[in-house]
């Protein structure tokens, strides 16, 4: 057994251990913290699988922002005893079914055919025509652009769903889930010092996505995290959900993407086709608008549904 394989085996065991901890931890908060550590280790696995773009997304979104949302929810759960666990019969049946599914999938992994079908050569070969160096960005923004367009719309839909959960009286207020009553001075200092650097990192991730791992989603996530940091400490206030400016920012990315896609009917011969020679600038414009819209959408998703103004009213 080589050193690398031994290290990978250790990594896999740690991941499984954290997954078990997430399932059996006594408190919800403990389970969520286990899940966040689990997400960071899974990001390491993605690096080991040479999928650095995925690793960045997993660390920022799958572990970081998801953990943030779940921690916030765990802190607000009722303290009384949780509902009774299902009986032994159901647990046994569920265990048998789950073990059978896992064993079946493991068998599939072990019995895979030797030669794997892949589109990687085609994806790499056509990159120069797009002016890109990162094949993942090429797939996201050109070959499978329809997926990315729908995905950016899904974020807006999720936000609409979230806002729909507000009570009638709260509609039109500012999202109120993040503001902590008394942030610690250390956190306030961090929120003052970190965002300039974080914004730089976010913009860099978006820019470098054309030639190296990175892109609109990773960059937008970092920008959203910086915004959320200032929201938590009260340095900035979340915008009113009815405001025109924030809604414009939210749809700017998907709208520009859709507009350029429709223009492709005339200029490129198909929906979402880029005219020859103009692919790179168009892709950069779409990615820039998407980064901004994704950052705003993620930040508002974390900020929760609107709440009516507290305190004295005019």
């Amino acid at each position: 057994m080589s050193v690398a394989l031994a290290a990978d085996a250790g990594l896999a065991l740690l991941i499984l251990g954290l997954a078990v901890w997430t399932s059996i931890a006594r408190t919800a908060g403990g389970a969520v913290i286990g899940f966040m550590a689990y997400g960071l280790l899974v990001a390491l696995v993605w690096v080991r699988l040479a999928a650095v773009d995925v690793a960045l997304t997993e660390a920022a979104l799958g572990s970081g922002l998801t953990g943030f949302v779940l921690l916030g929810a765990a802190a607000r759960l009722p303290r009384d005893a949780p509902a009774a666990r299902p009986g032994w019969g159901l647990r046994l049946a569920a265990g048998v079914v789950s073990a059978a599914v896992a064993a079946g999938l493991a068998a599939v992994v072990l019995l895979l055919p030797v030669s794997a079908p892949t589109l990687a050569p085609a994806a790499t070969a056509n990159l120069p025509a797009l002016g890109l160096g990162n094949p993942v960005t090429g797939v996201l923004i050109a070959y499978r652009a329809i997926d990315t367009l729908l995905e950016s719309v899904v974020l807006v839909l999720a936000l609409i769903g979230l806002w729909s959960l507000a009570r009638d009286g709260d509609w039109g207020g500012r999202p109120g889930a993040l503001r902590s009553a008394d942030p610690s001075p250390a956190l306030v200092l961090l929120a003052q010092v970190l965002p300039p650097l974080g914004i730089l990192v976010g913009i860099y991730l978006f820019w470098t996505g054309a030639i190296a791992p990175g892109g609109a989603f990773q960059g937008g996530t970092v920008l959203a995290a910086m915004w959320v940091l200032t929201l938590v400490t009260g340095l900035t206030r979340p915008p009113r959900v009815g405001g025109r400016g924030v809604r414009l920012l939210l749809v700017a990315g998907p709208a520009l993407f859709l507009a350029i896609g429709v223009a492709g009917f005339w200029l490129g011969g198909a929906f979402l086709a880029y005219p020859a020679g103009y692919a790179k600038p168009l892709i950069l414009a779409i990615e820039a608008a998407l980064t901004l819209s994704i950052a705003v959408a993620l930040g508002l998703l974390l900020a929760g549904p609107p709440l009516a103004q507290s305190g004295p009213r005019a």
């Binding site: 040479a50 589109l119 990687a120 094949p135 993942v136 499978r144 990315t148």
Partner: peptide, 30 residues
């Protein structure tokens, strides 16, 4: 086939899936 990297098509789909999973999780928590 593609040298050092993983299959870019699968990577792009996984990134899409991670973003959608996050959106669904936020909605479920809400």
């Amino acid at each position: 086939v593609a040298g050092n990297g993983s299959d870019p098509v699968a990577q792009a789909l996984i990134i899409t899936a991670l973003v959608v999973a996050f959106a669904a999780t936020v909605l479920a928590v809400a």
